[in-house]
């Protein structure tokens, strides 16, 4: 089998299993209370990690570049209660501008 076929088939199956594990095995039942306490905090924690990594990740390094400016602009816009679509557009526009001039 070509490497492309192997990767598509097995990464597809693995990802479907990873996504489905919780909902399939737990059968829609409420989580026990200690687990709920973890899940409540996991949302903000995972979001923070996603923000941090997608803003500062280089190739196996941390970098501060145009993305950081864009995300900073988004944070300022958020402070002024700008609607979310506009916050996202501001982040992209600032990042694109910073890249264009650098």
């Amino acid at each position: 089998m070509a490497p492309g076929v192997i990767v598509v088939v097995f990464l597809g199956l693995a990802t479907m299993a990873l996504k489905a594990a919780g909902p399939v095995l737990l059968e829609g039942r409420p989580l026990p209370r200690p687990a709920t306490a973890v899940v409540v905090l996991m949302g903000p924690s995972l979001l923070a990690a996603l923000i941090a990594v997608s803003t500062f990740e280089g190739t196996r390094s941390l970098v501060v570049d145009a993305r950081a400016l864009g995300v900073l602009a988004a944070a300022v816009a958020l402070r002024f209660k700008v609607p979310s679509l506009l916050v996202v557009i501001i982040a992209a526009a600032v990042t694109a501008t910073a890249r264009a001039v650098s």
Partner: peptide, 27 residues
């Protein structure tokens, strides 16, 4: 994609119904 295990667990209580339906929602 390993993070989809904890993400799936956090979504699990919201997804009831037959197993095929839970599987598809999870995707």
């Amino acid at each position: 994609n390993a993070r989809y295990i904890p993400i799936g667990i956090s979504l699990a209580p919201a997804i009831a119904g037959p197993v095929w339906k839970r599987f598809l929602y999870a995707q």
